[in-house]
Structure formats: C-alpha cells, structure tokens
Design a protein around this nucleic acid. Structure first.
Lengths: 200, 200
DNA sequence: TATATTACCGGAGGAAGTCTCCGTTTGTCA
DNA sequence: TGACAAACGGAGACTTCCTCCGGTAATATA
C-alpha cells in the first residue's frame, strides 16, 4: 500500500527519449513466461523462476513489475488486449461463424487465467478500475464479432453474446472440475449450432 | 505429486482407539482460522501465521494438513458441508422463500471461497474427485430447498435452481469487480421476486 | 563517429515464509 | 492409576521474495 513518487501520472512524463527496445522486448517476454507459470503453478508461482526462465535477473523483473500483483495485473491486461485484438483479426480473416468459434475458444483461455488472477487480486489493491475497463473491452470485442455474424445471417438476431459468455462462465466455475476446458469447448459447438437461424 | 502411504484408504483403519478430542478440536479450529485467512489474504496466506492464530505450533498444522493444498481442500470441503447442512436446517426453520434467500446468501459466501481455492488448486493434484462430489452435494442441497418452495407454491414449477445459481456465478465472475457481493445480494431479491407464481 | 547521458541489467543477500524433526505433553484404555 | 500411542510445539534448515547497487549498453547530441 505504499505510494510511489512516479505513479502520480500514469505516463512517465520526463522521458523525452524513445524507450529502449530491449526493455520493451524483455517486458513482453516476462509477461508471456509469467502467464505460463501462473496458469501452470497458480498465482504463487516463483518469481525468481520466472525471471530465470525469461533469461533476466530478478532485479529486471522487479523493475518492470514492482510487485507480484503488478505482474499479475499486466498478464491479465495483456490477455484482455489479446482478446480485443483477436476479435478484429478473426473478423477480417475468418467466416463469421468460424470467427465466433475461434474467439470463444480464446475466451476460454482467457477465463483460465482470469480464474487464477482475479482470485489472487481479490482483497488487494483497488483493482477495480482495471477490471471495470477490461470488462468493457471484452464486451466490446464480443459485440463486434457477434454483430457481424448476425448481419451475415449466421446467428439469429435475438442472440446476445452475453448469453453465450455466461454459459461458458457457468461451465468453467460450476461444471465438473477435471476437464472444464473440454466441456467448455464442446459447449461452444452446441451454442453455435443452437444459435443458427435455420433451426433443425 | 507424492503418494502418501496412508491415503489409500479414506478412513484410517488400524486405529482401534477413539481419536483424541484435542486433535479433532484443533483440526476444526485450524480450518476455521484458515478460511478467514484465505478469504482475507488470498490462497497464499502465511501458514505459520494461521498456526499461530489458531494457537498451535507449525508442526501441528502440518500434521493435520501436510501441504497448503490439503488445507485449501479441507476448507473447501467444510464450506460445501456447511452449504448442505444449511439446506436442511433452513428448510426446517424458515419459510420456503426465506429459506431460499438465506441459502443463496450462503451460496454467495461459498463462491467467495471457491473463487480463491479453485484457482489455487487448478493445475495441482487430482482434485477432481473432491470437486466432482461437492458439486453433487451443492446441487442436491439446492434441489432440496427449491423443491419445497415449489411444493408450497412460493416458486413456479418451471424454475430450475441451476438458473439462479448460474446467474449468481455470472455476476460473481463477470460483473463489476468491486462489490460483486452486493450485486449478487441484490440479484437474489430480483430472482426470488421474478420466480413467484403470481407475476405482477 | 565519438561522447555523454540515462535507462537497463543481473545477482548477492537480508527478510520472510515453508516445512521437518524430535523431545515433551496429554488423552485414552486397561 | 499407569502405560503408551497420539498429538503437541517450536527450533532450524531450506526455499522464495524482493532490494540494492555497480556495471553495461542503447540513444541523443555534436
């Protein structure tokens, strides 16, 4: 709960220079390794190990992410970002229905990390703004990709993306534990089949 | 991932003696303290601290629960047990609708701990049997308490407890982060009002 | 390109937490 | 009540967290 001098402004203002490329590279690498470590070992994964696997010293990791929570938050935000970008990319590259399928599969991956990270950040620092904002992003991405499928006639107009999302969330948190991912993946097929206009 | 000799049988068979009462008392006390610690500080709460707060030595804690995961699992199971017992107790002591309300409130508490514990136990030891079984217990408790309300005419017969449960799970995991508990509590009122036979 | 500047790098090490070991205490049964 | 199996507690070896700071390398300026 300590207040950092430099954190008053979200952006670091005194830097007139371009950020160093290796720093950026390392930052992203650490996030990627950390995501794997957290999903594999839980939110308590060894940070020294993550640094080692990323090929950097502990100091480097802690300069980029002053606390475990900061790293968890960064991983979570990166995941949300990926989800939002993917919505656009899939819209361009795939058929409307396949785009939804691919995006929902990605959403399942996202839930896996959210499950861990949200729990770890529970009673801690006021994480609400971050979560609030990312919710909007996820919802926006879903709307983008579903609207297109409705326009093209692959999905009935009365389908709400939130219906699909909540169904998946439900399975994730209340289905049989072992392979909830498999259940969720199967559910995606059912949802898509059941959301087509020409009902059997 | 180590295999314990004594874990082959769920019950300890060679003990002809009654289990010592202080052992049982300490075990339950530790679970209770641990639940508070985990919900307050997350799944990484200090085990030595928990032992200290429970007034026992670290060795005692570790004898009862050889690993952090064992303790997390015990807390989770106790929570499920409480949920199942409460369904019966509320059925006896409260009106059908109030019983549901009270039980759903307890369910929200249960979700708070499940959120933390399920995430921590994610990729770890084959937790499936425990979770599988507790799912059945929760579902059974819900059925018990909803059936009674349907019989008494406080809830429409077409209402499925799973509908209510999934709605709450959805808010818990996909609603605004800050005070999801408050949202969930409000949702309970809405659900109950909306599930009465005499619709406005 | 040479140089100054500044941000980044890495790992040693104190602090905090995990978990085991074993001598002591206590509840149960004869 | 005496004997003993079982539970107790906490010292301490080990692991992990996180900080600190001397060294290094990328960028801007001349």
């Amino acid at each position: 709960m300590k207040i950092e001098k430099t954190s008053v402004n979200a952006e670091k203002l005194p830097s007139s220079r371009k950020p160093r490329s290796d720093g950026q590279r390392n930052r992203e690498l650490i996030i990627q390794i950390a995501k794997e470590a957290f999903t594999r070992h839980g939110a308590g994964a060894s940070l020294d190990d993550i640094a080692k696997q990323a090929g950097v010293g502990a100091g480097t990791l802690y300069r980029h992410f002053p606390s475990r929570e900061a790293l968890l938050g960064a991983v979570y935000q990166a995941e949300v970002e990926k989800l939002a970008e993917a919505a656009n990319q899939f819209s361009r590259e795939l058929s409307p229905e396949e785009a939804i399928r691919a995006w929902l599969h990605l959403f399942i991956e996202y839930l896996a990390t959210k499950k861990i990270i949200a729990a770890a950040l529970n009673g801690l620092v006021g994480s609400s703004p971050v979560f609030e904002e990312s919710m909007l992003k996820v919802r926006g991405a879903a709307t983008t990709i579903y609207d297109r499928a409705i326009q093209s006639g692959d999905v009935r107009p009365d389908i709400n993306p939130v219906d699909h999302i909540l169904a998946i969330v439900g399975v994730t948190f209340f289905g049989p534990s072992e392979d909830w991912k498999a259940s969720a993946t199967r559910l995606v097929d059912i949802l898509l089949r059941g959301s087509r206009p020409s009902s059997s």
